[in-house]
Nucleic acid binder design. Structure first.
Length: 451
RNA sequence: GUGGAUGUAGCUCAGCUGGUAGAGCCCCGGAUUGUGACUCCGGUGGUCGCAGGUUCAAAACCUGUCAUCCACCCCA
């Protein structure tokens, strides 16, 4: 394909049949957000670069699309919704009712190399709560996630949780200094990928000793057979022995309490047939973006399709004060719409074909003599709320029109010829069953509506 | 930003040690002027990703570049 007619790297065109699924997924998410009492907002696709880059690491900063406007303002495309949310909240705090529960679905941009499930322009759907320090907020988000994923038919997935406070405590107990913390966490996060030797190597490259790694691992070496709540209890005991600094110890215990409370809540939710409990898992090696998280963090991954996590989030209690307003507890969850769509498509390769067209009826009339009746008929269906396409062919050819309608996935096909017009009726054909009947316009509407 | 693989028709792909491009599917027209399939007949469609270079001659060889995929990095 020539360069000019190819969409820019990492961006894509969507065909009409793909849009049906995309719309369905986004509407499902939107509906679930609303069911949980979140309200929709919108904010600009671009913000001042300085605002976007404020709390993200240098790695992320490289991924921001930057540009200058004609007045030389330095702007950037949003790469996620959290810092724009902080800005939005600070700007409008006086007008918002708190706790502020909002959602936003929109495109975000990241300048990074493309891969399967990784694009430069993609949709994210975020739900956040600002104004609560309680774990009830986390629980609401996780409940929302479980509910939404069921609705979407995501198959098997796993919610992995951890807590930044716990990580900080263990890092400290393992003798890793504050200045080496980020490097250590980044390496530890990769354990599953690069293995023990790999992590130790990375530790050394960053001037952290193997013994630090060993003591970190000793602290989180928990019997895999234990329930998460028991694991946390064991961890708490070890921390109380190994941590000398009282304030860090308290912080860490706080983190442990928080996770225990979340797990407990999920267990209780299970009574209401919530599958979330069985899929939630404490993982002391989960790290996530080092930017602004301050408490519980979580990540949701498919167990059916290897594509990285498709949703993630956590608590970021010190976000809004960055923008000069009174501190508020806050946490949020973000769904990767494209990844969700990729997983759905991967699990059911025929899904695009099985989704029906938003257009329900196709009308063809055979000559100008029938045009008036055809127009009236189309209008009748449209008033009834039935999406109707009226043929615009110059020379009507039923065979061709049927093929056209069928290819577009339209289920009903109405023919208006001399006979139909004179009797003010329709020949209505169901393109799936291939059966056709002669009936009145009202009867046809009823038939289509109850289908 | 780093490393690897790939790039030929709308799609899936063939194309030998260099000799100037093919198949299947799709699409269009007809057999069939009020009915989708099948069949048959006919037809459209390619600056071989792009730009240079080597050569009498390049889809093929060399260099660069762009894109896709994979692995890093990082992440939805």
């Amino acid at each position: 394909m020539s360069k000019l007619i190819q969409p820019p790297k990492g961006t894509r065109d969507f065909l009409p049949e793909e849009m049906v699924l995309r719309r369905k997924v986004m509407e499902t998410i939107r509906g679930c957000f609303a069911l949980y009492g979140f309200i929709e907002i919108d904010s600009p696709v671009f913000e001042y670069f300085e605002l976007l880059s404020r709390k993200c690491g240098s790695e992320i900063e490289k991924e921001i699309y930057v540009f200058e406007d004609k007045a030389k303002r330095k702007l950037g495309l949003r790469f996620e919704f959290t810092s724009p949310l902080g800005r939005y909240y600070a700007t409008n705090a006086e007008k918002l009712t708190k706790p502020f529960k909002r959602y936003i679905i929109g495109k975000v941009y990241r300048y990074e190399n493309t891969q399967a499930g990784r694009y430069r322009e993609f949709y994210q759907a975020d739900a956040d709560i600002i104004g609560s320090y309680s774990m009830n907020a986390e629980n609401e988000l996780l409940d929302l996630a479980v509910f939404t994923l069921e609705k979407l038919g995501m198959g098997n997935y796993e919610i992995v949780i951890n807590n930044r406070k716990i990580l900080d405590g263990i890092i400290n107990a393992a003798g890793i200094g504050e200045n080496k913390k980020d490097a250590a966490l980044r390496a530890l996060d990769k354990t599953a990928k690069i293995g023990e030797a790999g992590v130790i190597k990375e530790f050394k490259e960053n001037g952290i000793g193997e013994e630090n790694y060993r003591s970190f691992m000793r602290l989180i070496d928990l019997d895999a057979g234990l329930e998460d709540s028991k694991k946390l209890a064991v961890l708490k005991e070890r921390i109380s022995v190994d941590l000398k600094d009282e304030s860090i110890k308290n912080k860490t215990n706080e983190g442990i309490e928080e996770l225990s409370s979340i797990i407990e809540d999920r267990r209780n939710a299970k009574a209401g047939k919530d599958p979330g409990f069985s899929v939630i898992k404490f993982d002391p090696l989960l790290v996530r973006g080092l930017g602004y998280y301050t408490g519980p963090i979580f990540e949701i991954k498919s167990k059916d399709v290897a594509i990285g996590s498709f949703a993630a989030g956590g608590r970021y209690d010190n976000l809004v004060e960055l923008y000069g307003v009174r501190p508020e507890g806050a946490c949020g969850i973000s769904f990767g719409v494209e990844r969700i769509i990729d997983i759905i498509t991967e699990r059911d390769k025929d899904i695009l074909k099985s989704l029906s067209s938003p257009i329900k009826l196709y009308i063809v009339y055979l000559s100008e003599n029938e045009r008036t009746f055809a127009l009236k008929t189309a209008n009748f269906f449209r008033i009834k709320g039935i999406n109707t396409e009226l043929s615009v062919s110059e020379v009507p050819n039923i065979g061709k029109e049927i093929k056209y309608a069928d290819r577009k996935g339209i289920e009903y096909f109405a023919v208006i010829g001399e006979k139909e017009a004179s009797e003010q009726k329709l020949t209505l054909k169901n393109l799936k069953t291939r059966k056709e009947i002669f009936l009145s316009v009202e009867e046809a509407a009823e038939l289509i509506e109850c289908n």
